[in-house]
């Protein structure tokens, strides 16, 4: 079931990249997509982590929110670069995470790293080690807003 989904996704990407639509080329594309799908099935990498279709539409909403956060954090870091004396307050702290699955943890850690001003340094069990650039960005992680949102996207209470 997921194999067919993977082949369809691959073929859509292939159609977007190719730009040449003659029957011969398209048939090559179909054959290569099916070959890749078969190989991935043999390698046993098609599971809920390899092709996370179960996240559904909520992840798109989350990405929209994340882009807004990124813009805000970028302005913060830019201020910090220009006036380091005033804003630069690096800190290093441990925070708790509430996601159960590995996929949820990875999404949360990558969101933290993608937001400039905070970097995930380590991730083990239910703790996450974060390096933050300014007080505001450290507070942003400690408040746990992003954590709640990721947990909601993953469908874990």
């Amino acid at each position: 079931m997921r194999t067919i989904g993977l082949i369809l996704v691959l073929f859509a990407v292939w159609l977007l990249f190719s730009g040449i639509y003659t029957p011969l080329i398209i048939s090559f594309g179909i054959v290569s997509c099916i070959l890749v799908g078969w190989l991935a099935r043999r390698m046993d990498v098609i599971d809920h982590e390899g092709l996370p279709l179960q996240l559904g539409i909520q992840i798109i909403v989350y990405w929209g929110w994340l882009v807004l956060e990124i813009v805000k954090a970028n302005l913060d870091v830019a201020k910090c670069v220009l006036f380091p004396k005033k804003y630069l307050r690096p800190s290093f702290f441990i925070s708790r995470i509430t996601q159960k699955s590995d996929l949820g943890k990875v999404i949360y850690a990558n969101s933290i790293t993608l937001t400039p001003g905070t970097v995930t340094v380590d991730l083990y069990d239910e703790n996450i080690l974060v390096h933050a650039l300014t007080e505001a960005s450290a507070e942003g992680v400690k408040s746990g807003e992003m954590d709640e949102k990721v947990t909601k996207v993953m469908g874990e209470a």
């Binding site: 990124i70 970028n74 870091v77 830019a78 630069l88 993608l114 400039p116």
Partner: peptide, 26 residues
Amino acid sequence: LITGYGLLKFPDLYTRIHAGGMADTL
């Protein structure tokens, strides 16, 4: 440009990572 400036100016590696992250995102 701010990214390049920050890469040069920040005092240690962990803070430079933040500066580099700016070019990747916004």
